[in-house]
Design a protein around this nucleic acid. Structure first.
Lengths: 218, 218
DNA sequence: CCAAGCTAGAGAGTTACACTATCCAACACA
DNA sequence: TGTGTTGGATAGTGTAACTCTCTAGCTTGG
């Protein structure tokens, strides 16, 4: 398969494929001559994976490269898939070691987390600080119910990790972390619509303000 | 309060504040003279809100402007906070009306969603397609448990919406949607670490404490 | 009253990112 | 043999989010 065929098969422009190769997202084709290379089906599959990471996954090209590098070279001992996965997904900027509110939350929940992985805790810290700055206060009980729901999810997810091979497990964890996130968020918004419709079953008076002739949910 | 003081109070550069004003995120100061304007505490609070939306919330400047415009001018009848909120948060690009897989999921769950709001369903569709393209197949039962968890969350959230005033309700819904998302995702990753540690006892052979502090979700 | 410094507003410049286009010599096939 | 494609490299494009610069007016210490 040549690059133009690869491009046709995946509907990704040749120039973009070359860019991904240069960026380290996609391995080079097997060179058959000084100006000729051969691509395989694995390249096509890899391209679809790349697009999933960059699009729905919301990763930058640089981060996707780090994640893919991890997948290509899983730790042989592989005792810490999550550590490897979260590290590849993290931003690893300095100054992320302080997260007092996140630590307080975790202490109250009695969750044991990797003390070396500041990334996830820093994300929580930043999110909580953002809520504060926005003047939105979240009742502790609501935060607890969020935590409970996420813990329930995590139990199912971790139990579902395939333990056959480290590579398979790592792939499952990374993709499950990155690509499931948008699923969860979309489901939450849709669930809100459902619940809102059921609770506020008022068929309120609709003003015909916008040019939106479609019928509304009741 | 002058612009330099506002800048000092919020730790945001003067040039950036001016940019936000031009972009419609922040109202102009009250002009006291042709080259002089007065800013208030509400401007400072607004700036923190803006930074929360742009940072943790992950919104673009243009989308944040739309969201803030909604908050400033809530629909008076306001029977559909979610519709208004999700519309302000949506991207409203063409070609988002097809989402067969999302529709199938919703039908199986028997969720009633706003048929006019394609945004959330399109997000779900894109996320599911991304999983597919990446070669990650999610068992239907796992998807159902995700849905169940999100539904449980949504019930608590909708019940917590303050109904005193439309403005208050809309603010709650918008900020709850945007700013809580990173909290949920961070909690999920941390929960995964906790569960993983308990099940696999990875970082050394510590006794895996049994029990499940927090898994009260359905 | 006056100079030094701050200020509003607007346009232009900068940086980062994700592509996208062009070029070149080396093939491949008709 | 020649037309067209290819790999590799370099340079250019478009967008987003700032950041700088300029102009002319205000404000305040002395």
């Amino acid at each position: 398969m040549r690059i133009s065929e690869l491009s046709a098969a995946t509907d990704i422009p040749v120039a973009t494929i070359k860019y991904y190769i240069r960026a380290g997202l996609l391995p080079e084709g097997r060179a058959t001559a000084p100006r000729q290379a051969e691509y395989s089906q694995t390249h096509a599959a890899r391209l679809l994976l790349i697009r999933a990471l960059l699009g729905p996954g919301g990763l930058s090209v640089a981060r996707a490269a780090a994640v893919l590098a991890q997948l290509d070279d899983p730790p042989s001992s592989a005792h810490d898939f999550l550590g490897a996965a979260h590290h590849a997904l993290g931003s690893a900027q300095p100054g992320q070691e302080n997260h007092p509110r996140a630590d307080a939350v975790l202490a109250e929940l009695a969750w044991e987390v990797d003390p070396a992985d500041h990334e996830a805790r820093f994300r929580l810290e930043r999110a909580l600080t953002g809520l504060d700055d926005a003047g939105f206060d979240m009742p502790p009980e609501l935060l607890r119910s969020y935590a409970a729901a996420m813990h329930g999810i995590a139990v199912r997810e971790v139990q579902g990790v395939p333990l056959d091979s480290p590579a398979e497990a790592l792939r499952y964890v990374v993709l499950g972390t990155v690509l499931v996130e948008p699923v969860l968020l979309a489901l939450r918004r849709l669930a809100q619509q459902d619940v809102s419709g059921r609770i506020f079953a008022w068929a309120g008076s609709v003003e015909p303000a916008e040019g939106d002739p479609g019928s509304r949910a009741s």
